[in-house]
């Protein structure tokens, strides 16, 4: 059963229930599903955690995931990276799980909806100045918009908006297009090829999750510590380069 028709560009268009302007569509439903899996899974594993040497394999698994996220964040944040873990980690886990579950028949990734990607990008867009202000103070943060001089202010603002847009469209475009391509291939090619495409889709999904999370972290890092600009730019270029490959 196809939930999202091939001519429907987004699962937003699949309305399940509506009452006035309030409506529940496939995007929200599948978002809840992913949320439920993450929260219930975390709760099940962490309800009896052990800080001893011997731990359960699920705890090991989660510790590995969290350690990797923490390592990536600390590499960029240099210090106090743990406070970014909830935001960056949730971005990575939510996007990653959504993209992985695409292999389950009948599942539609919430990230193939531009509304979801836009909401995530908006969260990052808001979080960056919040972290920047809390770290360096409002004045210092605003001063960054006038560097090297006031002429650059509009460019800074445009940069903020455009990178948010880029985040939104990049994720949405990749996932949505992949779903469509697989759908079309399934219709026109024999059995084997769509499987390879699905495998490639998993890879793309993980890479997109990684890129989204890392770019968010780069933006936050550049906002929180303006003194290490060179390093940030390097990170930025690196992340954008990998995104280019994936795209």
């Amino acid at each position: 059963m196809e939930i999202v028709q091939i001519n429907q560009i987004s699962p937003d268009q699949v309305i399940i229930w509506s009452w006035g302007f309030i409506k529940i569509n496939a995007t929200i439903l599948y978002t809840w599903l992913v949320m439920a899996i993450l929260v219930v899974g975390s709760w099940l594993v962490t309800r009896n955690l052990s800080s001893e040497i011997n731990v359960s394999r699920w705890q090991h698994f989660l510790e590995v995931v969290i350690s990797v996220i923490r390592g990536e964040i600390n590499e960029m944040a240099k210090k106090g990276g743990d406070k970014y873990i909830p935001l960056i980690g949730t971005l990575f886990l939510f996007i990653g799980l959504s993209n992985i579950l695409v292999v389950v028949p009948g599942f539609v990734a919430p990230t193939s909806s531009i509304t979801t990607t836009a909401s995530l990008a908006i969260c990052v867009f808001v979080a960056v100045p919040m972290y920047g202000i809390s770290q360096n103070g409002l004045l210092h943060y605003l001063k960054e918009y006038f560097q090297p001089n006031f002429i650059f202010f509009p460019f800074h603002v445009m940069g903020e908006i455009s990178r948010t847009l880029a985040l939104t469209v990049r994720l949405f475009g990749n996932i949505m297009s992949h779903e469509k391509v697989v759908g079309i291939l399934l219709a026109v090619t024999p059995l084997l090829f769509p499987i390879i495409m699905q495998a490639l889709g998993l890879l793309i999904g993980i890479i997109q999750a990684y890129i989204f999370a890392i770019l968010s972290m780069v933006y936050i890092a550049s906002a929180t510590s303006a003194h290490e600009e060179g390093h940030k730019h390097e990170e930025l270029h690196k992340a954008e380069a990998s995104q280019g490959i994936a795209a």
Partner: peptide, 29 residues
Amino acid sequence: FVLGCQIFNFLLLVYLLKRFLYGRILKAM
């Protein structure tokens, strides 16, 4: 509306995961 819902959903997820995942796991580690 859906956009607002998704933002809320995401923030809720951040809170819940912070509560049930990161905090506990990091503490245990």
